[in-house]
Design a protein around this nucleic acid. Structure first.
Lengths: 121, 121
DNA sequence: CCATGTGTACTATACCTCATAGTACACATA
DNA sequence: TATGTGTACTATGAGGTATAGTACACATGG
């Protein structure tokens, strides 16, 4: 695995959240495939010059959210996708999207521009 | 002004952010009109049973973001909308929207469903 | 002029989260 | 058996959050 994850110590966003969301994005974009092994806690910590406890916290979050699974003695692996589950999470995400789209419209962006961006995904 | 703002002390989101985003949403949705006076720091604090300093921090944030303006001795008022400005902010919002839409698609929601939600705004 | 309400600024305290360092244990595998 | 792995603790320091309290300058109505 290539280490595309970037951590900015000046960012007010906690480090463990930056690591967590960075890996999450790699999984969502398909860069990391199901059952693929991701770097161990200590390896990732050394590579990013971050404390292992902080990486462990990020990995734990990813496991709770269902993006990875951890096997003691073996490692951490990408969890298979399970479409349709987590309706609560989907509604939460939709709420956050709507909130930001409303603000974008308030700032003068048209719905058509926004929908165009979504089409280009 | 009616106090539709709700504050949840059990929410890990800081109180001042809840107040800030609550008022911001009222402005974006048009519930509060330009140059309309919003409750004073002390009045809002007493009404929500929250420390005035916390309300002041929320109001300060709103002023920095351009949603309100404050006049010493008079009060806090809703700022007029300025479309097209803050390109940096618009790009930030778009990034956050895209990130969440990607996750929604990953969870099995189709683009059409998402665009339908936007149309219903 | 004066009392009231307003925004603003400052100190101090307590609590929680974040990040670090260090140590330790159980498991899997070559 | 040695190594790498996830996991679980303790302890410490830094920073953000929320509170309480005090104070000052300004605008307005009586």
């Amino acid at each position: 695995m290539i280490y595309i994850i970037s951590v900015d110590l000046k960012n007010p966003k906690p480090i463990y959240e930056q690591v967590r969301d960075g890996i999450k994005n790699l999984i969502i974009r398909g860069v990391l495939e199901p059952d693929e092994k991701i770097p161990s806690v200590r390896e990732m910590a050394q590579n990013l010059a971050i404390n292992p406890n902080t990486i462990q916290k990020a990995y734990r979050d990813l496991e709770v959210q269902g993006f990875v699974y951890q096997i003691p003695g073996k490692g951490t692996f990408v969890q298979s996708r399970t479409p349709g589950q987590n309706r609560e999470k989907m509604e939460q995400l939709l709420t956050e999207v709507v909130e930001r789209v409303r603000e974008l419209i308030y700032l003068g962006v048209s719905k058509e521009e926004i929908k165009q961006v979504l089409d280009d995904l």
